[in-house]
């Protein structure tokens, strides 16, 4: 099934795009990040340190071990700095 991958802040800048659609086969978030890191040097640079990456699946923050069945929108971004 296809899923939208969204990137924000410096993750978006390093990857060089804000959104892409992929064929989602990775069983977990961690597997997906490993798969995405293979797509380009920019992806690899953005995803090299997973302690600096946060993930939301269908707009809910999740752990890296979260499973991805039926996920439609997966967002990848740095730790948040609101307020």
């Amino acid at each position: 099934m296809s899923a939208d991958i969204l990137y924000f802040a410096w993750v978006r800048e390093r990857i060089g795009m804000g959104r892409e659609t992929i064929d989602l086969t990775a069983p977990t978030v961690r597997d997906l990040l490993a798969e995405l890191a293979q797509r380009s040097d920019g992806h690899a640079a953005a995803l090299s340190d997973l302690t600096q990456v946060r993930v939301a699946v269908d707009q809910v923050l999740v752990d890296l071990d979260q499973t991805l069945s039926n996920a439609r929108e997966i967002a990848i971004f740095p730790p948040m700095t609101g307020g």
Partner: peptide, 23 residues
């Protein structure tokens, strides 16, 4: 909660360039 869990990211714009604020 707003500081660490709401999806906002601050970038500083200075005369010498730009930089993302670290959490």
């Amino acid at each position: 909660y707003l500081k660490s869990r709401a999806p906002f990211w601050k970038k500083e714009i200075t005369r010498s360039g730009t930089a993302w604020v670290s959490a």
